[in-house]
Nucleic acid binder design. Structure first.
Length: 799
DNA sequence: GATTAGGGTTAG
């Protein structure tokens, strides 16, 4: 069998052939050459074994790159693996979450769930004899009941008893001096590793557990990455092979030979993800239970002092606090001081000190706007912390512990009453030493606090910064800026001439009217551009969302239940189509149906009805035929699926019908006199009211005089030079829309950095609940691209 | 192969 359990631990039993070359997960693409290549990662998810019939199984699992750099985003370092056949069964029985896995002989495909699960855009598929897996078990004891035969790649059978290691954990109150133990505990105090006078780095901790005993713990290790990864008080720690020692009349813990440590987030309900750099640590179901028990217990104690983490918006002068932030730039000041420019997206109520450094010494690019908007905090890092800060790269996410908020030394003249430093600008000092846990570290991008911070930074708009100091800049008309607005990002294509007016003017006049304005983009919705794709019915004028793949998959599997023999005057071709790779569908036959009428004209292949297929199979078959209509047969009558699903697949394009306005007529004579089968003639033949794709966005516009919300709908396609239908099927077209928005509104940009747009605005009234209100739409305007793509598609009508 | 530190604010 091709699952190979490698000997416990990192010892010499590793038998992975040395000629295999490893590809880092983030670098995998569908075009990767996979021969002789391996992929390695930790199993972070293991799905159930799905039986597809005799000796035919499917199993989905997710592995995560272990060696990924801290700046690497989670979505690219975790990848789905689909296992087929006996391999799936074997995997199911021999691999657990937390194990290290190395695979070879795989193929790379596009992951159909990438949008949903936010993992790697590709998946790995393993089937057949060429596929091999090497497993480094993390918990051996749990698997002791399953005796395993281990087969080497050369098929020489060797049987080895798997070593059973059962760890016992001692409550902290039961510790006796002079023994080596394993413990599980909650961290109540910690220092990031610091250099000792000896050869190692030292981490100093205080920990406790349900016995309520508090124990000091000192970890010596010369490798920084082997120190516990503790991010905040309340984190859970597991220590293996620490020795007890009596010091000052109390038990303390000290690293001993073979020491290892794993840590976990301490929040109740968050995923139990071990934090370690070790590939050979052991971790299983029992560990999850211990971690969760400790979390629950700790949640009811007051172990952690009042929240030391404070955003810049809540910082009090002269206090010490922990700051979670993003590094914008850094610069060495002198041998014992480094400047870090950071922000956390919140605005400090106190003016922030600016620290001037020579521009050529600055690494990274702080934008001036963040300084002007009082968003950039200048952190001076001293002495022992300089060495740590040297490793940081701008863009990374940091936590700085015990940061001192110091009002600036810009004392007013002494004839003032002497209290003047209170009004100084706030600077931040990370003083030398490690008292109170003083220190700093990079946090991985996937840690919960960083995900929160990223959300804030991403959705950060300039709305908070139009205070009085900024107002002058805001209300300055574009012409009077130092540089002329020579780069206008859009141009009007209307043939009327009306005078350009301000937004304030626009709002003061009543619709209907047409305006020309020159504005900047303040914000837009939706931020996820695929959500701007809509379906429009010309008949009933309704707009609906394009359903996501999960919804469509559901409709397809629902339809599979109703599959059976049917007779509609179609020539039926029951094809035991090879379901390869074996799909998740029940073992039903795939049925292709063709029109006997079309058969007579020799055009049968141009319109094919497909019954019993999954979405994925339909897509695959659609790539080979021009028109695929998925059908089902409740009560023996062939009919298209529920119209929430696409009624037609043409290549990569999907077409939808209006539920309200369609009058299905499948089964009758088909397409008399139809010359060309396209979405329109198929819709006509089936009685489907075809829905048209459109792009709908809400743009918030600004000029010096005010703000205005305007829709982009009727002329959205010509605005982006993209057809909505293409955008629905084609990532490249979607990317073009994204690129345009990024140009008009660069992520994280200030107003000053955004280009101006010449727009033609149409004002009209809509009535909602008896209330009339003015609405605005951008029309007759196109972006000036470097690369205009014009599409002759029709655009949706006014709503 | 032993040693390091053993929480409890810099002083810029």
């Amino acid at each position: 069998m091709p699952v190979l359990v490698v000997k416990d631990g990192p010892g010499p039993g590793t038998q992975v052939p040395s000629q295999l070359q490893r590809i880092p997960i983030p670098l995998l693409s569908p075009t990767s050459d996979c021969t002789g290549k391996t992929v390695k990662g930790r199993v972070v998810h293991k799905g159930p074994l799905v039986s597809m019939g005799e000796d035919n199984y499917v199993l989905k699992t997710v592995i995560q790159e272990v060696d990924s750099q801290q700046n690497m985003s989670l979505e690219h370092s975790s990848i789905n693996i689909i296992l087929f056949g006996v391999l799936a069964k074997d995997y199911s029985e021999s691999v657990s979450q937390g194990d290290m896995l190395l695979v070879t002989g795989f193929s790379v495909g596009n992951s159909p769930t990438a949008q949903k699960d936010k993992l790697h855009a590709c998946n790995l598929q393993l089937a057949g004899d060429d596929a091999w897996m090497y497993v480094w078990p993390s918990t051996v004891s749990l698997r002791a009941s399953v005796p395993r035969k281990i087969t080497s790649p050369a098929s020489t059978e060797v049987t080895k008893a798997v070593k059973v290691v059962k760890y016992t954990y001692v409550p902290l109150s039961d510790l006796k001096p002079g023994v080596v133990v394993n413990v599980y505990a909650v961290v109540t105090f910690f220092k990031q590793p610091f250099r000792t006078k000896g050869t190692d780095y030292c981490s100093t901790l205080k920990i406790t557990d349900q016995s309520n005993q508090k124990v000091g713990c000192t970890i010596f290790c010369d490798k920084l990455e082997e120190h516990p990864k503790i991010f905040k008080m309340g984190d859970i720690i597991r220590l293996h092979r620490v020795k007890t020692q009596l010091f000052n009349g109390a038990i303390s813990l000290l690293t001993s030979h073979g020491f290892s440590v794993v840590t976990f987030d301490g929040m109740v309900g968050s995923p139990v993800v071990p934090r370690t750099s070790s590939e050979s640590f052991k971790f299983g179901e029992e560990d999850c239970q211990v971690v969760e028990a400790l979390r629950t217990w700790a949640a009811n104690q007051s172990l952690v002092p009042a929240q030391p983490c404070v955003p810049l918006s809540a910082v009090q002068p002269k206090t010490y606090f922990d700051l979670t932030c993003q590094l914008l730039a850094k610069a060495p000041v002198d041998s014992s001081c480094t400047l870090l420019k950071v922000w956390d997206g919140s605005k400090c109520p106190h003016p922030l000190l600016d620290v001037f450094v020579e521009p050529n010494t600055l690494e990274g690019c702080p934008t001036l706007s963040k300084d002007m908007a009082n968003l950039t905090a200048n952190v001076l890092v001293y002495d022992n912390h300089v060495e740590v800060a040297r490793q940081f790269k701008p863009g990374s996410y940091l936590r700085i512990y015990n940061l001192h908020a110091v009002p600036g030394a810009s004392r007013l003249p002494s004839n003032d009453s002497g209290q003047s430093d209170q009004t100084g600008h706030l600077g931040f000092h990370l003083h030398g030493g490690t008292s109170y846990g003083r220190g700093l570290r990079v946090l991985p991008e996937d840690s919960p606090d960083i995900l929160d911070l990223k959300k804030i930074l991403e959705t950060f708009s300039e709305s908070d910064i139009n205070d009085s100091s900024m107002f002058e800049v805001w209300s300055t008309p574009p012409e009077s800026f130092g540089t002329a607005p020579d780069e206008i990002a859009t141009e009007r294509t209307c043939d009327h001439t009306v005078e350009q007016v301000s937004l304030a003017e626009v709002k003061s006049r009543s619709p209907p009217q047409v305006f020309h304005v020159q504005v900047q983009l303040k914000s837009y919705q939706p931020q996820r551009l695929y959500q701007s794709l809509k379906l429009f019915c010309h008949k009933c004028k309704t707009i609906r969302d394009v359903p996501d793949d999960v919804t469509v998959e559901g409709l397809f599997s629902e339809a599979q239940k109703d599959v059976g023999p049917c007779n509609n005057g179609y020539w039926t071709l029951v094809l035991p189509l090879p379901r390869e790779p074996p799909s998740e569908s029940p073992s039903q036959t795939l049925t292709l149906l063709m029109s006997s009428q079309l058969m007579g004209n020799g055009k049968a292949q141009e319109l094919i009805f497909l019954m019993g297929a999954t979405l994925e199979e339909t897509c695959r078959i659609a790539s080979a035929y021009s028109n695929i209509v998925p059908v089902t047969s409740p009560q023996g009558t062939m009919t298209p699926l529920d119209l929430s699903a696409p009624f037609l697949f043409r290549g990569t394009k999907r077409y939808y019908g209006c539920k309200q306005c369609s009058q299905l007529k499948v089964g009758e004579s088909l397409g008399e006199g139809v010359e060309v089968w396209d979405e329109k003639s198929v819709a006509d033949a089936l009685g489907v009211q075809l829905l048209q794709y459109g792009l709908l966005m809400k743009l918030e516009l600004q000029d010096g005089t005010g703000f205005l919300e305007a829709l982009l709908w009727r002329d959205a396609e010509s605005f982006f030079h993209v057809s909505a239908e293409d955008a629905a099927a084609d990532q490249e077209a979607q990317d073009r829309v994204q690129e345009t928005m990024d140009r008009l509104c660069p992520p994280g940009s200030s107003t000053a950095e955004r280009p101006w747009m010449d727009l033609c605005l149409s004002a009209y009234t809509v009535e909602e609940n008896g209330q009339r209100r003015a609405c605005y739409q951008i029309c007759h305007t196109g972006t000036r691209g470097t690369n205009p793509h014009t599409h002759p598609h029709a655009t949706p009508r006014d709503t």
